[in-house]
Design a protein around this nucleic acid. Structure first.
Length: 351
DNA sequence: TAAGCGTGGCC
DNA sequence: TGGCCAAGCTT
């Protein structure tokens, strides 16, 4: 991409994004950008749709209004407030980052990319976003949206999310930001364009401010860019047991996962991972060290990469509900929280 | 470097 | 409806 073309693309996207009514109204798009708010928002936005973050960011900021409050909070409180957002390591890292800012940077979030990158959970994208959007620094950003937009504008049929693809995208993003009138407007405009116009499916090319510059549109290849990522189709089985006593009892069987791996450090029903489908009630009872139930109901659910097989062990009072289907661990935990005895299960959304 | 990490929305 | 995707980062 030469300088003339970069300038043209920047002009198109910046003037579009600066048009009143174009940027969607989000709680992180405040008049003047508070760096702490930007940090929390950007971490929340990692691999998470903006509409979802918009629902949760205000409450998080209400509870942790500044970096000092966040740093002094207990990690379990931060995790609880993150509950339902997924990728809980983000919450742990954000909390740790706040503490580091307090101790290493005297409570002031760094402005430059390099020190930002030294904070846990802050990678190249997040550091670039804070520097360029909160401080208008001339720093590039490249995420899924930017990648899709630039791949299509340049007509590059590269694989979605592949390292070589992102290396190419970062290079283009840097060329662009050097040509921008405002790095903040360009970068946020690139992402907004990818999220609202240059969408993964059915892109609205007729509404695109860069349509006359887009090589994919000219070749009618926009639907084939980027090429889909090849995903290995591996399935593991997770057997989970839930033992709930009657109204007199107090026990929901729950355990804390090891600190590494799936559902790291989260409270959940005890689970047993297996390679094939065995697991009779007796086997699970032995594995979990709990008594074999009189009754049980078993069912599977599928998540993105794995099949989970649940065996629900129940008392008489719970049998009524045992036919329910749970699509996610969160839903299962909802059930647990509906019982009279409860400890917070952190892998669940708030009710 | 490739694989792992949560959950919800989309068609 | 099930696979793909979402304002990525870490190991």
């Amino acid at each position: 991409m030469n300088t003339t073309r970069a300038r043209a693309i920047c002009r198109a996207i910046e003037s579009w994004f600066a048009t009143p009514g174009v940027p969607r109204d989000f709680p992180w798009r405040t008049a003047h950008r508070d760096p702490y708010r930007s940090l929390v928002a950007e971490v929340m936005l990692q691999q998470t749709q903006a509409s979802r973050v918009a629902e949760r960011l205000p409450r998080f900021l209400e509870r942790f209004p500044d970096i000092q409050t966040l740093a002094r909070a207990r990690e379990t409180s931060v995790l609880a407030e993150w509950s339902g957002l997924g990728y809980y390591r983000r919450a742990k890292n954000l909390h740790a980052a706040a503490r580091e800012v307090l101790h290493r940077f005297d409570g002031e979030l760094p402005v430059e990319v390099k020190p930002l990158l030294s904070l846990p959970g802050v990678g190249r994208y997040t550091a670039g976003a804070i520097a360029s959007i909160a401080h208008n620094a001339r720093e590039p950003i490249a995420d899924g949206n930017v990648a899709r937009v630039l791949l299509r504008i340049e007509g590059q049929p590269m694989e979605h999310g592949a390292p070589a693809t992102m290396a190419w995208v970062w290079d283009q993003a840097e060329t662009l930001v050097r040509a921008a009138a405002s790095p903040a407007v360009l970068n946020e405009g690139l992402m907004e364009l990818g999220a609202a116009v240059c969408t993964p499916r059915n892109p609205r090319c007729a509404e695109c401010p860069a349509r006359s510059l887009c090589k994919a549109r000219k070749a009618n290849t926009q639907d084939a860019i980027p090429t889909p990522k090849r995903r290995p189709d591996r399935t593991t089985l997770h057997h989970a047991a839930v033992l709930i006593r009657d109204a007199r009892g107090r026990t929901l069987v729950e355990r804390r996962s090891p600190d590494a791996g799936l559902w790291a450090g989260l409270w959940q029903p005890p689970t047993l991972e297996t390679e094939s489908r065995p697991a009779t009630s007796a086997q699970l009872a032995a594995a979990f060290g709990i008594p074999r139930p009189r009754r049980s109901a078993a069912f599977d659910f599928l998540t993105s990469h794995r099949t989970v097989h649940f065996t629900v062990w129940s008392s008489e009072t719970f049998v009524e509900s045992s036919e329910r289907h749970f699509k996610t661990p969160a839903q299962l935990a909802h059930l647990a929280l509906s019982t009279p005895h409860r400890r917070l299960l952190l892998n669940l959304p708030a009710r």
